[in-house]
Structures are given as structure tokens and as C-alpha cells.
Amino acid sequence: MNYADFAGAFKTATSLPIAYLSWHGHPPSFPYCLLLQIPSDDQYADDRNYLKVANVQLEFYSQLKDSRTQSKIESFFDANDVAYEYQGDTYLDSEQMQMAVYQIQLIKE
């Protein structure tokens, strides 16, 4: 699954705005998500990449802790066989917002 396919299915299922890396201009009102690529975890054999695994960080931003929406995000991962690891919540004092971080893996076809 590539980023565009993932983002489209995610937005349809969760109704959350989602973008890669940053919003052009101002972000939408809360809640919303960002995707960031972190180092890949490709599998190699016979001098080539035979399985491309994109490690991705999904950041969920909200005004306050939003367990209901986080459950919706996790349900989307489960329903679409997306392996994920919840990294926890951070309050961004300078931005006056909550950030929940998930690490996921997308297998590129």
C-alpha cells in the first residue's frame, strides 16, 4: 500500500484530515493527522530489495486527549491489517495541543 492509497482509505474511514509531512499554509481545525516517513525496513536478497517496507509515523493532533478518535484510528489499522505500535501521547505546550504517535508499516507492492 502506498501513501496515497493509505491516506485516501484512512480519510474515508475516519473522516480525519491527513497530509504527508506538513500542511501547505495553515493546518485544519482539530483533530487532524500527519504522516512522516522514518527509516525503511526493506528486506534484501540476491542483491536487490525484494520486499519494500516503509516505516511511517502517524501523528494525531487534537486539542485535548481524544480516546474515542484514537480508538477509531486503531480500528482502521486493525481492519486494514496495518501493523502499528502506539508510541504514547505528548502535550505540545508551545502549540497548546495534544499529539498521539503511532508507528506503522506499509508494505509497498
Rank of each mutant, 00 (worst) to 15 (best):
Met1His: 04
Leu34Asp: 00
Arg68Glu: 12
Leu16Tyr: 03
Val82Leu: 12
Asn2Ser: 00
Asp66Gly: 00
Lys72Glu: 10
Pro28Glu: 02
Val56Met: 14
Met97Thr: 14
Val82Lys: 05
Gln98Trp: 15
Leu21Met: 10
Glu95Asn: 10
Ala4Ser: 07
Tyr32Ile: 02
Trp23Tyr: 15
Trp23His: 13
Ala19Cys: 11
Trp23Phe: 13
Ser94Gln: 13
Asp47Gly: 14
Gln98Ser: 12
Ala7Gly: 07
Ala83Pro: 06
Phe76His: 09
Tyr86Met: 08
Ser22Cys: 03
Phe30Thr: 01
Phe6Ile: 12
Val53Arg: 15
Tyr86His: 08
Leu16Gly: 10
Glu95Gln: 14
Tyr32Ala: 06
Glu85His: 06
Glu74Leu: 02
Glu59Trp: 11
Gln63Thr: 11
Phe10Asn: 05
Asp42Ala: 05
Lys108Tyr: 03
Ser75Arg: 07
Tyr3His: 09
Asp81Ile: 02
Gln70Met: 12
Leu36Asp: 08
Ser71Ile: 06
Ala4Lys: 05
Val101Lys: 15
Lys72Cys: 13
Gln63Asp: 13
Asp42Ile: 03
Ile38Val: 15
Asn80Leu: 11
Glu59Asn: 15
Lys72Val: 14
Glu109Gly: 02
Gln105Cys: 01
Gln43Val: 09
Ile73Glu: 06
Thr69Asp: 05
Pro28Asp: 03
Val53Trp: 00
Glu95Pro: 02
Pro39Ser: 08
Thr90Lys: 14
Ser94Tyr: 09
Phe10Leu: 05
Gln105Phe: 00
Gln43Leu: 13
Leu106Glu: 01
Ser67Glu: 11
Ala100Met: 03
Glu109Asn: 07
Leu36Gln: 14
Tyr3Leu: 13
Leu21Lys: 09
Phe77Thr: 07
Gln70Trp: 03
Tyr61Ile: 11
Asn80Ile: 09
Thr69Asn: 13
Ser29His: 14
Thr14Lys: 01
Asp78Gln: 13
